[in-house]
Amino acid sequence: MNNNKKHYLTCKDYTVSNQKFDLRYNNKLEMLVTSPQPKLEELASYYKSSAYISHTDSKKSLTDKLYQFVKLYALKKKLNLINSFNSEEKKILDIGCGTGDFLLTCVNNGWNVVGVEPNNNAKKLAEAKLTSNQESQIYSELKTLTSQKFDVITLWHVLEHVPNLEDYILKLKLLLKPNGVLVVAVPNYKSYDATYYKQFWAAFDVPRHLWHFSKKSIQLLFSEVKMNVVKILPMKFDSFYVSLLSEKYKSGKSNFVIAFCIGLLSNLKALKTKEYSSLIYIIKNN
Rank of each mutant, 00 (worst) to 15 (best):
V107R: 11
N108I: 02
N108T: 06
N109Y: 03
G110A: 05
W111K: 02
W111S: 01
N112T: 03
V114K: 12
P118A: 09
P118C: 09
K124N: 15
E127L: 15
E127K: 09
A128Q: 06
N133R: 04
E135M: 09
S136T: 13
S136C: 11
Q137L: 15
I138F: 07
E141S: 14
L142P: 01
K143F: 14
T146H: 15
S147E: 15
K149I: 06
K149V: 13
D151T: 09
V152M: 00
T154W: 00
T154M: 04
L155C: 05
W156T: 03
W156R: 01
V158M: 03
L159R: 00
E160Y: 10
H161M: 01
N164F: 14
I169M: 06
L170A: 12
K173M: 05
L174F: 10
L174I: 12
L176K: 09
L176H: 04
N179L: 15
V183R: 02
V186S: 04
Y189L: 11
S191C: 11
D193C: 11
T195P: 01
Y196N: 02
F200E: 10
W201K: 06
V206F: 09
W211R: 05
H212D: 15
F213I: 06
K216L: 14
I218D: 03
Q219L: 02
E224M: 10
E224T: 07
V225I: 10
K226G: 05
V229T: 12
V229L: 05
V230Q: 08
K236R: 14
F237T: 11
F240V: 02
V242Q: 02
S243V: 09
L244Y: 02
